[in-house]
């Protein structure tokens, strides 16, 4: 079980890239994290790996099986990476060492972390590759990354992430760089692996369709804050937060194809421009006077929780 308690990520200039996130991911739970770029979702993921870039500071607690791991305890983190939490990234093209054969890449953690022999590691690597459904898995073992397609590489990365049987797999925009058909197969694979292995899945994306297909729970982030969370299906069908609504409205669908897509005006504000109040204030179509000065707390809604002053106003 992986949990975050009051997690903040502070930048060198003192601003918060992630603010006060509480989160628990149970075995087999699939949680989607949604938001535009700059919303802090990748920082959140990296903080769960102990891999926040130099110069940024993590505050609050990251708990692995109930034990808190200090952000600066690199040694402790190292023993948790791959074993407790594994991660796959956005660019499968760049995420594999171009000089190492696929089989050796997957065998490396098996040998170093699990102490398997060369033979056993290779056999396990083959099993893992087969589990990811890569075609001609045996042949792939001796191929180099540049000989594989993007989807195949993402499967290799998934096999690598599964090598030490982690409790949680973080997938940071795993399908963004892939074409639509391949993306669908990768998300389905992630769901299947999570179910079969009782493995938690943190699925980060800005693609609401992918999130709704992949996850059971959802967390919407904006400017480092969690603005809404709940069951994926409920939140996406009845969003409470204006930002979530905006995201849904900006989503292309077959019905709206001929129309010009609605967009949320403005862009995610630069961190140093973020005020004390609601971070969506200024871009929000339904802004109240209070929004700019006071930060709305996460409060219960019919579908989960949302952080918006409108909720109180309606009640």
């Amino acid at each position: 079980m992986i949990a975050l308690r009051g997690l903040c990520v502070r930048t060198g200039t003192g601003h918060l890239a992630v603010r006060d996130v509480d989160l628990t991911i149970q075995a087999g739970q699939r949680l989607g994290v949604v938001g535009e770029s700059g919303s802090g979702k990748t920082m959140l993921a990296l903080s769960m790996m102990g891999m926040v870039p130099d110069g940024l500071q993590v505050e609050g607690q990251v708990l692995v099986d109930g034990h808190s791991i200090a952000a600066e305890d690199e040694r402790a983190w190292r023993s948790h990476r791959a074993r407790s939490v594994a991660m796959i990234f956005q660019e499968p093209m760049a995420a594999l060492n171009p000089l190492v054969r696929v089989g050796d890449t997957i065998a490396e953690p098996l040998r170093r972390h699990l102490g398997l022999s060369r033979r056993d590691a290779r056999a396990r690597a083959l099993n893992l590759l087969e589990e990811t459904g890569i075609p001609q898995a045996r042949r792939r073992l001796d191929q180099y990354p540049h000989e594989l397609s993007g989807g195949q590489r993402q499967r290799v990365l998934i096999a690598l992430a599964l090598a030490c049987d982690p409790q949680l797999l973080i997938a940071d925009e795993p399908t963004t760089a892939l074409d639509a058909q391949v993306a669908l197969r990768i998300t389905d694979l992630l769901v299947r692996l999570s179910q079969e292995r009782r493995m938690g899945l943190l699925f980060i994306s800005h693609d609401l369709a992918a999130v709704s297909r992949t996850t059971s729970d959802i967390m919407v982030m904006y400017g480092g804050d969690v603005v809404e969370r709940g069951r994926t299906a409920s939140v996406l069908s009845a969003p409470e937060h204006p930002y979530t609504r905006g995201l849904l409205a900006a989503r292309p669908s077959l019905m709206t194809r001929s129309r010009r897509l609605p967009t949320i005006p403005g862009t995610v504000p630069q961190l140093n421009a973020l005020a004390a109040g609601c971070r969506f204030a200024g871009r929000c179509a339904r802004e109240l006077p209070i929004c700019a000065s006071r930060r709305p707390p996460l409060s219960p809604t019919e579908t989960g929780q949302a952080a918006c002053h409108l909720l109180g106003a309606q009640a």
Binding site: R81, A82, R83, F89, A95, N97, L99, V100, P109, C164
Partner: peptide, 23 residues
Amino acid sequence: DFVRTARATGFAPRHVLWRHVLP
């Protein structure tokens, strides 16, 4: 990116440096 992958796989900095960066 693959250096980040290697770190995310839990390898020690020395191993990442000599096995993944150097080659």
